[in-house]
């Protein structure tokens, strides 16, 4: 399959205001697409629409070859088992413990699995990310960073084909952020499709095969990292500089930071 996800003339309208306006884009399979744009431009909504979590008011969305507007319940259940989603605010289930948050998707997709086998699905991932918190705590008792780690592990626990990552490294410390990026690079090398929202230029330069630049709900530019970084469009350059430099603390030009050829950082 050439495209893992596809949006065609898709619009999402909240209270008469178009959050997404006639968006058409194909997300290539096995590649990482980083979505960037100013706050409130519709990045999260676009990602949710691509994952089928937000129904479009106009247009259509396809995911892994299925038209999400016409998919049967059975196909949708099986499709959901093939994708993972990290929400911006973690969106953990507050009435469940950390262990139950991670076990529930595994138990749901593998009925009858032994409790110890369920634990074996997520314990190595927690260990990789250096999570040392209590598994019997509720999400409200965790720090924001810990919640983000659990959300990340929950998305990976079913070994999905496509990952939707809405700012997966916000709230986490540098070490955990590096571990997450290392995990994402590993998934990228294994040919997983990833849609990633981040304001971090370092992560963008390391993971992005494609960049999608959004502005006020419309696609300003979609192309390979090199195409977008070297775009002559001043609006694109302005957004790249403004959005990504918010998170950058490096005294260097933001575009050269993104340019892999300039290699400003060693591999993590």
């Amino acid at each position: 399959m050439e495209h893992a996800a596809r949006l065609k003339e898709l619009s999402v309208i909240y209270e008469g205001y178009p959050v997404l306006d006639e968006v058409t884009v194909d997300f290539p399979a096995g590649k990482t697409t980083v979505i960037i744009g100013p706050s409130g431009c519709g990045k999260s909504t676009l990602m949710k629409a691509a994952a089928g979590l937000v129904p479009p008011d106009r247009g259509r969305a396809e995911l892994l070859g299925f038209d999400l507007g016409r998919i049967s319940d059975k196909d949708l259940r099986s499709l959901r088992g093939r994708n993972g989603f990290v929400f911006q605010d973690a969106a953990l289930w507050q009435n469940l413990t950390v262990r139950q948050n991670l076990a529930l998707p595994v138990e749901h997709h593998n009925p009858g699995l032994d409790t110890s086998d369920v634990g074996r699905r997520f314990e190595p991932l927690l260990s990789d990310l250096g999570f040392v918190g209590q598994m019997e705590l509720r999400p409200s008792q965790l720090s924001a960073g810990e919640r983000k780690i659990i959300s990340f592990v929950r998305a990976l626990v079913s070994d999905p084909d496509i990952l939707f990552l809405d700012e997966p490294t916000t709230f986490v410390d540098t070490e955990v952020s590096e571990r997450i990026v290392r995990k994402l690079k590993n998934l990228h090398d294994r040919g997983k499709t990833m849609l990633l929202i981040t304001h971090n230029p370092e992560i963008t330069s390391q993971l992005a095969d494609y960049l999608l630049v959004l502005k006020r709900g419309r696609v300003l530019l979609f192309g390979t990292l090199q195409e977008v970084v070297h775009s002559a469009n001043p609006e694109v350059s302005a957004i790249l500089s403004n959005v990504l430099s918010e998170a950058a603390t490096y005294d260097t030009d933001i575009l050269s930071l993104l340019d892999r050829n300039s290699d400003p950082f060693p591999d993590m």
């Binding site: 994952a51 959901r80 989603f85 969106a91 953990l92 529930l104 998707p105 997709h109």
Partner: peptide, 12 residues
Amino acid sequence: NHEVEAYLATGI
């Protein structure tokens, strides 16, 4: 809290 979306996203 987007917990319902999280159920949808995990196929539940």
